[in-house]
Each structure stands twice: as structure tokens, then as C-alpha cells.
Design a protein around this nucleic acid. Sequence first.
DNA 1: ACTTGACTTAGAGTAAGCTCTAATCAATAT
DNA 2: ATATTGATTAGAGCTTACTCTAAGTCAAGT
Lengths: 118, 118
Amino acid sequence: MRTIGETAELLGISAHTLRYYEKERIVVPLRDAGGDRRYNESHIGWLKFVIKLKETQMPIASIQKYASLVAEGDHTSQARLELLAEHKRSIRAQLETLQAADEMLERKIQSYQTFIHS
Amino acid sequence: MRTIGETAELLGISAHTLRYYEKERIVVPLRDAGGDRRYNESHIGWLKFVIKLKETQMPIASIQKYASLVAEGDHTSQARLELLAEHKRSIRAQLETLQAADEMLERKIQSYQTFIHS
DNA sequence: ACTTGACTTAGAGTAAGCTCTAATCAATAT
DNA sequence: ATATTGATTAGAGCTTACTCTAAGTCAAGT
């Protein structure tokens, strides 16, 4: 069971952000006797997943939606599956955009090098 | 030579955004006799490039930097090359992140399907 | 002459996602 | 005993990248 500071450190995000995620009902940690937040392994695993979704441009609103489905229970698994499948398609689209840009930059960089050495 | 409206339409962005880009010195169009903005083929080409950079998460500040180097002239080509090379590395990093997330989601989706059909 | 539509400006407002402040409390270190 | 450290809260503030508003000009069509 980790404090907010330890959890922030471990995940490379700020304690501010963790409180914000709680306010947005994305991760609701436990509380110790003194009222301080405590994150267990399941919170940490879920946060790592959230961070992966964020890294791939999933908006906070969609992450909230997914989190609320998880909170609702097993009967929402079909809806969750659809949400993830939709996001996977968005990742595929991003991959294509990035690949095209990568090739474009490669050509542009080549032509700059030709120009500089001429 | 296109008006702001035609240019916006052609590129799929708003006229507001084009004025914003001008304020930020990213694209400075010509003006006609009446003072209205006019975009020529070179502006359009540059805007398409800017849009590609934006799509790959290059911040406006870096695009501004690149634009100012272009405006400065040929002697900045080394600096521009470095900026583009740096951005290309960022694209590669994004590609890796997305690929890892894609695989993770694939596994997660598989396990949801297994769960749903059990 | 009037209307319509596209344009102009400076500057205000918006949404997302944090990020920080102020005031306070509780446990530990000196 | 006091000081430091790390936590708490509600709510304000910040950054990025637009997006919109208000008030107006101007040319073309009816």
C-alpha cells in the first residue's frame, strides 16, 4: 500500500495529477486511518493501464467512461470491449499518420542534406 | 491565389485557425488590393506541411521556430535539418508507444472475448 | 438602394488536462 | 518543544491551441 507520493514517483506523474484523477473518478484509492490516500497493487496496475491509454491520445472523458463501466461490474464487459476496440482503431489510424509523416520527413531530411553538401 | 475561405475549405481547417497561424507568424499570406488575405500555391504547400507536423504532435512553438528559420534564409538549413531530425526521432518514439499499446489492447480485447463467451 | 456574403480587426472566451495555492493537520527528526 | 516533511482540502490559475465576438468594410447581385 503506497502513499500518494510514492505512487506518483513510481509512475512518473505528480501527486497533483493523482488527486485530479480521483476527482474525475478515474482512480479512487483507499484511505488509511489518518485519512491519507493509499494505492494498492490493483490501483497501480489500473493507473499503468490509464497511462498507456493517455499516451495513445485517449481523451480523459473516454477513460472516465471506461472506468465507470469497470466500476459498474461484469455485465458491462461488452460495452468495454467496444470502447477498447474503437480505441484500437484510433491507434491504427495514428500509426498510419505517423508512418506517412516519417517517410515524408525522411525525404525532406535527405533533400536538406543534398542541399547542404552542394 | 485563394481567399481565406477557399484555403480553409481546401485544407479542412477554419479561417479562424488561418488567422491564428498568421498572428503566430507561421503562415503570412499576401494581401489583395482590398486588404484581404491571399494564399498562393507556396502558402498552400507550406500549410500542408505544417498540418503534417501538427498531426504528429509537433507543438506550435516548434513549428514557429522552424517557420522563423525558413524565413531567415538558406544559411539556416543546418538548424532546420536538426529540428526535423529531432522531430523524426519523436515520431519514432510515438510509433513505438503506439505499437506497444496496440499489442496490449489486442491482448486485452482477446481476454474480454474469452470472458464474454465463457 | 438594399441585401448578402466574405472579408477585416483586437481582443475575449473556451476546452482539456493539469498545476498550483493557501491554510491546515499529523507524524517524525533534532 | 519545535521544525520539517508529507499529507489533506477547495478552489483558483495556467498552458496550448484554438474559437468566437463585436463592430465594421467592401464588392457583387436584385
